[in-house]
């Protein structure tokens, strides 16, 4: 680990002042950042510990929900109002990591967690555009089983633009399906980004994960009034029953009118550089009867244009089967 300074701040304003230090980073639960520092992937000059700045409340009312950036993943998942109104979010959170990690992980930190691409996480691999811009992408010719099939940039292994990494978060997938917004503050003021615009595709700058600027602080995540409390399902397909990242995950929320779908929220995890929300699929579900045919059509649309690699070709079919399953379950009621 590189030597670094540690600074504890007690209020959001102090955090925003401190972040002006060159190459400083916020420290949430530290479950991602500290690991990356130990392994030499990240080397911030200063850690600004924001664990004591407040922003740790969950508020749910008729206007929706406001979740403080420092709310722990466990607290959020078990918050009675979240469980009642946004079970999709609760289930997504509980499917992630382990109890110990969830007890530490924060909402802001989870939004910002970095990819688990093997080549990004191990500095002994020389080629990774995300870690060392311009170095190429080892995943293209390497072991790409956990990598993206949608929205990636692939201009060849040696191109500085190439990146086929995925966003590993479960929480983010549910937030995408729930139409969340991210509230952001900087020394200059406040702004709000829809979740869909918070994470980004690699484009030509794979080193940039999100549209958050380095001097900005996430203060909260907000959710619109709950539409899917009665009919939602988070499905996570993974290599073991617990404590594994998703091969593919599906967050499905349905607003039902008898057997007809009034509206739908559908997002995929494990397939792209950001939670993959499919407006086409959602559109194809709206106004349709909740039948297998409807779900299959949505599944086709959701993965349309997928471009898989040597080791992850299975994701296309697995995603489709998972979407149909999650939608079927959601149409039957809420997840227990």
């Amino acid at each position: 680990m590189n030597p670094f300074a540690y600074q504890r701040v007690e209020a959001p304003d102090a955090a925003l002042q401190a972040i002006a230090i060159h190459n400083a980073k916020f420290l949430g639960g530290g479950t991602n950042l500290v690991d990356l520092m130990k392994d030499g992937v990240e080397s911030p000059s200063t850690l600004i510990d924001i664990n004591h700045i407040g922003l740790n409340k969950v508020l749910v009312n008729a206007n929706g929900a406001t979740i403080g950036a420092l709310v722990r993943n466990s607290d959020l998942a078990n918050d009675p109002a979240i469980v009642a109104h946004y079970p999709l979010l609760s289930h997504a959170l509980l499917s992630g990591a382990s109890p110990q990690l969830r007890n530490m992980a924060t909402t802001g930190g989870n939004l910002m967690q970095r990819t688990r691409c093997f080549y990004f996480m191990d500095t002994a691999f020389p080629a990774c555009n995300k870690r060392v811009p311009g170095s190429g992408c080892a995943a293209i010719q390497g072991f790409n089983r956990i990598h993206a099939i949608l929205g990636q940039t692939d201009e060849g292994a040696t191109s500085a633009h190439t990146c086929i990494a995925t966003n590993p978060s479960d929480m983010n997938v549910a937030l995408a399906a729930l139409d969340a917004k991210v509230e952001i503050q900087s020394a200059k003021g406040k702004r709000t980004l829809p979740l869909a615009d918070f994470h980004r595709l690699p484009g030509t700058t794979p080193e940039v994960d999100t549209n958050l600027h380095p001097d900005e602080l996430i203060v909260a995540v907000t959710l619109p009034p709950a539409k899917f409390a009665k009919n939602s399902w988070y499905l996570k397909v993974r290599d073991r029953q617990s404590y594994a990242f998703a091969l593919v995950s599906v967050a499905a929320g349905l607003e039902m009118d008898g057997d007809t779908i009034r509206s739908a929220g559908l997002a995929l995890g494990g397939v792209a550089h950001k939670p993959w929300r499919s407006p086409e699929a959602e559109h194809a579900l709206a106004g349709k009867p909740a039948t297998r045919e409807t779900f299959q059509r949505a599944a086709e649309l959701a993965v349309a244009g997928a471009k898989p690699y040597e080791h992850n070709a299975f994701k296309v079919e697995l995603a489709k089967q998972s979407i149909v399953r999650a939608l079927t379950q959601a149409s039957k009621g809420a997840q227990a």
Partner: peptide
Amino acid sequence: DPVYGRTVN
């Protein structure tokens, strides 16, 4: 890894 020969996981 087929190129670098290193254990990826």
